[in-house]
Amino acid sequence: MSTNAPDDRRYTASHEWAAENDGVVTVGITDFAVQELGDLVFIDLPEVGAEVSIGEAFGEIESVKAVSELLSPCSGKVVEVNTELEDALDTLVESAFENGWMIKIAASDVTQLEALLPADKYAKQLDDHE
């Protein structure tokens, strides 16, 4: 499997990505995660205004009869949700790092992102995984 990890964002060990801009963190999952999940059937994302906590589930996705939790890379308030994903899960397959973004969080503390993996270390994690 090819390793694709854009270096303009940071990564969780559980394969979420986080891109910060002016205190707003855009969150999605990596294409590696999408391939691991397999045949995607449902996604549940929070509503705008929901509070999320670092390391806690902000949503869930179902594939292969398995519901997998999506973990927030930082704490804060959800300010935007990609509602189109619910009816267009193939977007995650085609564009996990761009059009497949899931939520945007007004981060309560952007320094939380410093604990996440930079692209090269995330890529190494994937290489080690294989």
């Binding site: 009869k65 398995a66 519901v67 939790e69 973990l71």
Partner: peptide
């Protein structure tokens, strides 16, 4: 029949 939930 089998069904799963992954948490962390």
């Amino acid at each position: 029949g089998l069904a799963l939930h992954r948490r962390g």
